[in-house]
């Protein structure tokens, strides 16, 4: 299992899209810092990335956001795409330890 971290907003940066293009079904994707905006359930037409998240999630990939970064930005759990679980620093460490390696997309 590979851990992907993404720290840029999906709305002005390609990091999340680039990540989702190579993320595999047994990987974990963790959104941190401005990356957490990528977990929002956009009210507009479904963007490419939210489709891809849905698809990867259905195939077994896990998606996380860091609680502190969501709270800091006023993002409520209910606003997140259903694929996302909220985790904390301890969860981040556990994911990194579980992973064979970590790829950070920035």
């Amino acid at each position: 299992m590979l851990l992907h971290t993404v720290n840029k907003s999906a709305f002005n940066h390609s990091a999340l899209g680039d990540c989702l293009r190579v993320a595999a079904p047994n990987d974990a994707v963790l959104l941190i810092e401005n990356g957490v905006y990528g977990a929002l359930n956009s009210s507009q037409d479904e963007t490419d990335y939210s489709q891809r998240i849905k698809q990867l999630s259905a195939n077994g990939a896990r998606f996380y956001v860091l609680r502190a970064d969501c709270e800091a930005r006023g993002l409520d759990d209910s606003a997140l795409l259903p694929a996302f679980q909220v985790t904390d620093d301890a969860g981040f460490v556990a994911l990194a330890a579980e992973a064979s390696a970590t790829q950070s997309w920035y």
Partner: peptide, 10 residues
Amino acid sequence: LLATSKSILS
């Protein structure tokens, strides 16, 4: 390649 690397530097 990503899955089989021991460590990744980006």
